[in-house]
Design a protein around this nucleic acid. Structure first.
Lengths: 168, 168
DNA sequence: ATATATTTTCAATAAATTTTGAAAATTCGG
DNA sequence: CCGAATTTTCAAAATTTATTGAAAATATAT
């Protein structure tokens, strides 16, 4: 397979992959493009490469910056802004985990804390099932939260080493 | 908080949560409703409770069955079909992980295998960056794949116990 | 300061996804 | 079998989400 074709396949499937994970196609494609670009790119480079409008490009680059996956690079003597993506995949994964934990898991756990304290007699099976379900989710969610905290702080080598030990 | 309100909040936020994970709102809401219902429900119960159409209800129940999260229950003497959700959250999580691994991670890893063998001189920085990126993702993906395999087979107590040990 | 390059915003539009509801198919008791 | 109850399908409509492109804002060189 030629590089051009391989690049296109990578970008397109990374985009499709993203949509399964709550990330929009374009954002994931821009990320993919930057991941495989040896040098930083400008907005115009990205627009041209992916055939998308200026506005769309701009909004999604900003979003990638918010997620901490892309950074602005200023090249001396150049007026335009350049963008590059973090290339260390382990760092990328940790960054995504960190953001999603903050945006999704933590608010969910807060809600579950409130819901667990529902009024009513636990001998009523409706109350009992509700409380049991909420508690069960909360328990696992809290454990996941702790686990992810450690993972976010971990080095890849340390992490993989431990997993191997754990699962041997 | 009263049970009725708590239920509604749970269903609605489970639905919102689902949309961040590539699951449609209604499917997640039906799942939530069944999770907190002590007894199996019929299609009509679900339609009424969530205010959704028959077609929508039917399609999403079927999808939940495909995911292995809900099962048909036949009550003797009853013509209607009843549905109930797996209540053990650890099993639910494992089932979701198993399905998503099969549907998303495995196809991605297969693609990466192909893309890694791109033609071209690795001294060309475009080729090098591409191959390095693909290899990096593949490496981490393979590790995740193995880890998830073990997790899917694991008991909750065993799993949590090991995590605690690992992160102490 | 002015002109020009560049980035950002956002209302309008397009595309994708979800939902509806009525018709068709299926199931099952009598 | 027949007929009523129930489930399934799917084209059309509604809704949600993503994209465009031109105008406004901002930044920078001279």
């Amino acid at each position: 397979m030629k590089l051009t074709e391989a690049k296109q396949q990578f970008i397109s499937s990374w985009g499709a992959f993203g949509t399964h994970w709550g990330i929009n196609r374009t954002m994931a494609q821009i990320h993919a493009l930057l991941l495989i670009s040896p040098d930083p790119l400008t907005q115009d480079d990205i627009m041209e490469e992916l055939n998308i409008s200026r506005g769309n490009t701009n909004m999604n680059i900003r979003e990638l910056i918010n997620w901490g996956l892309v950074e602005r690079v200023l090249l001396s003597g150049e007026r335009k802004e350049y963008f590059s993506a973090e290339k260390d995949i382990w760092k990328v994964v940790k960054q995504i985990v960190k953001e999603r934990k903050k945006r999704e898991l933590e608010p969910m756990l807060q809600l579950l804390d409130k819901l667990e304290e529902v009024e009513g007699d636990k001998r009523d099976k409706h109350v009992k099932t509700f409380v049991d379900t909420v508690s069960g989710i909360k328990k696992l969610g809290k454990q996941a939260d702790k686990t992810l905290d450690v993972m976010i702080r971990a080095e890849e080598t340390w992490f993989v080493g431990n997993l191997l030990k754990m699962f041997k």
